[in-house]
Simulated scan of single mutants.
Amino acid sequence: MTDGVLDEAYERLHRTGPEFQGWLSNHGPMAVEALVRHGHPHRVHRWLDDYLDRLDELPRGLHPIDDWRSALGDPKRAGDWLAYFDRELREHPWRDVLGTWWPRLLPGIAAGATHGVIRVGHAVRALDPDDENQQRLTELGQALGYWAARWQPIPGTDQLLAGEPEGPGTDELLAGEPEGPGTDDIDVTGALAGVPRIDDQTGGVRDRLGRLPGVPRWEPALATLRPARSPAEAERGLATLVHRASLDYLRFGHAAPVMLVHAVTAPTAVLRTLPALDRGLWAPSLTAAWAATAAMTSVYAPADGIAPPTVTPATPAEVFARAARHGDEHVVKLADAILDAYAASGDERLLSAPGYAGQLI
């Protein structure tokens, strides 16, 4: 993306904080990146003119991050985390910073209802062709800072993501594993179909996630998806997870049209980030993404789905154009993720999901 519209949009957004109204996520950087990516830069500034009015100012720091472990997941330190990553990305190559912090942040993938990892995924994609661009480096820093400040584990994932690797190539979960595909791929579809639901589906995401330990079948269901045996298998597993979650949106999206979008966009963000990571981090990335999608499904989806809706057929370009005209940030981001999944699978059923989300939201 060489169009300066994205950088102008980032400049406007980087004066604002990662959250507003207490804890709602700032979707601006993610939505504008998707709009520019899919050929709608002309909509960006008008969209921002409306969206910026609801955002808070950039938070001020309290004191520099020294012990990062104790500061993880402390939203009062958001300003400190933003300053920390701004400095890190000025002093070190962005792939080195990402490679160091990805395994530290990954166990807290629920951060901000998964918006921490989603924002990082968009930032990494924007940097891929233009990795010395200061606005895009700043965006990656703000994305990582937000993830760190809201770092939140998903109950039951501590054993799945055992250990705390310090950087690329040190992940013990992959030690000695073969590089080639196994004789059978991971059964993502079966594992997702077996995810139990919490009984009390009321309240916000943090309350709902807090109920997961009380679901007897939650941890066994989470462990159903075996670890990837190779980076290639992890990549395939992530692609299947995005595909399956997208189809599930057509069955369950009516119950929580906004929140179930994240069951699709969170693993999409992880999948997009893989090429910038050491391949030793790909298997735990699948594990964390699986936990995120399973958790969002458990706490927001009903036990029984409905028949997929009928949506007027459209080409991929028109699917996104409709989402852009709709203007809701979740519809835009879902369309962006769905087009990735469609490009990988050719499954035309997926193209109904953004239009359905547009009807529901």
Rank of each mutant, 00 (worst) to 15 (best):
residue 323 A to G: 04
residue 316 P to I: 03
residue 288 A to G: 13
residue 257 P to Q: 04
residue 266 A to R: 08
residue 296 M to C: 13
residue 259 M to L: 15
residue 322 R to E: 12
residue 282 W to E: 01
residue 294 A to K: 01
residue 325 R to Q: 09
residue 301 A to C: 14
residue 270 V to D: 04
residue 283 A to Y: 04
residue 289 A to D: 03
residue 308 P to N: 14
residue 293 T to M: 10
residue 315 T to E: 13
residue 312 T to G: 09
residue 288 A to I: 06
residue 289 A to Q: 03
residue 319 V to Q: 04
residue 274 L to S: 09
residue 288 A to E: 04
residue 297 T to I: 00
residue 276 A to S: 15
residue 292 A to P: 12
residue 286 L to D: 11
residue 321 A to D: 15
residue 314 A to T: 06
residue 313 P to M: 10
residue 305 G to C: 10
residue 300 Y to M: 12
residue 322 R to A: 12
residue 279 R to A: 15
residue 292 A to V: 10
residue 260 L to F: 14
residue 274 L to G: 10
residue 279 R to M: 09
residue 328 D to H: 11
residue 261 V to A: 14
residue 327 G to P: 09
residue 322 R to F: 02
residue 284 P to H: 04
residue 285 S to R: 06
residue 278 D to V: 02
residue 293 T to K: 09
residue 280 G to Y: 04
residue 266 A to E: 07
residue 312 T to D: 14
residue 293 T to G: 13
residue 305 G to A: 11
residue 273 T to F: 05
residue 326 H to Y: 00
residue 309 P to A: 14
residue 274 L to P: 09
residue 285 S to M: 08
residue 316 P to H: 06
residue 271 L to I: 04
residue 294 A to W: 06
residue 314 A to R: 15
residue 259 M to C: 00
residue 310 T to S: 13
residue 259 M to Y: 08
residue 269 A to C: 07
residue 285 S to W: 01
residue 276 A to Y: 08
residue 297 T to C: 02
residue 319 V to G: 02
residue 270 V to R: 01
residue 302 P to F: 02
residue 303 A to R: 15
residue 264 V to C: 08
residue 276 A to F: 08
residue 261 V to F: 00
residue 263 A to M: 15
residue 323 A to M: 05
residue 266 A to L: 07
residue 326 H to K: 05
residue 306 I to Y: 12
residue 311 V to I: 15
residue 264 V to F: 08
residue 328 D to C: 00
residue 310 T to K: 08
residue 300 Y to I: 00
residue 294 A to R: 01
residue 315 T to L: 10
residue 263 A to N: 11
residue 319 V to F: 06
residue 283 A to L: 10
residue 278 D to T: 07
residue 277 L to P: 12
residue 272 R to L: 12
residue 271 L to H: 12
residue 302 P to I: 01
residue 322 R to M: 00
residue 323 A to D: 03
residue 301 A to V: 08
residue 293 T to W: 09
residue 277 L to H: 11
residue 322 R to C: 01
residue 274 L to Q: 08
residue 303 A to K: 14
residue 288 A to D: 07
residue 260 L to V: 09
residue 279 R to S: 13
residue 318 E to G: 00
residue 287 T to P: 04
residue 324 A to H: 02
residue 298 S to K: 03
residue 298 S to Y: 03
residue 322 R to V: 03
residue 272 R to P: 02
residue 303 A to V: 15
residue 269 A to H: 03
residue 283 A to N: 06
residue 259 M to K: 07
residue 314 A to N: 07
residue 325 R to G: 03
residue 267 P to C: 08
residue 311 V to G: 09
residue 326 H to F: 01
residue 308 P to W: 12
residue 315 T to H: 07
residue 299 V to D: 01
residue 276 A to R: 08
residue 279 R to Y: 05
residue 295 A to G: 02
residue 292 A to H: 10
residue 304 D to M: 15
residue 311 V to R: 13
residue 257 P to C: 02
residue 306 I to M: 14
residue 324 A to I: 06
residue 300 Y to T: 10
residue 295 A to W: 00
residue 324 A to M: 05
residue 302 P to E: 00
residue 290 W to S: 07
residue 317 A to M: 01
residue 327 G to F: 05
residue 270 V to C: 11
residue 316 P to W: 03
residue 290 W to P: 06
residue 297 T to E: 06
residue 279 R to I: 03
residue 285 S to T: 09
residue 286 L to I: 11
residue 265 T to W: 01
residue 275 P to Y: 07
residue 290 W to G: 04
residue 269 A to V: 06
residue 289 A to Y: 00
residue 291 A to H: 03
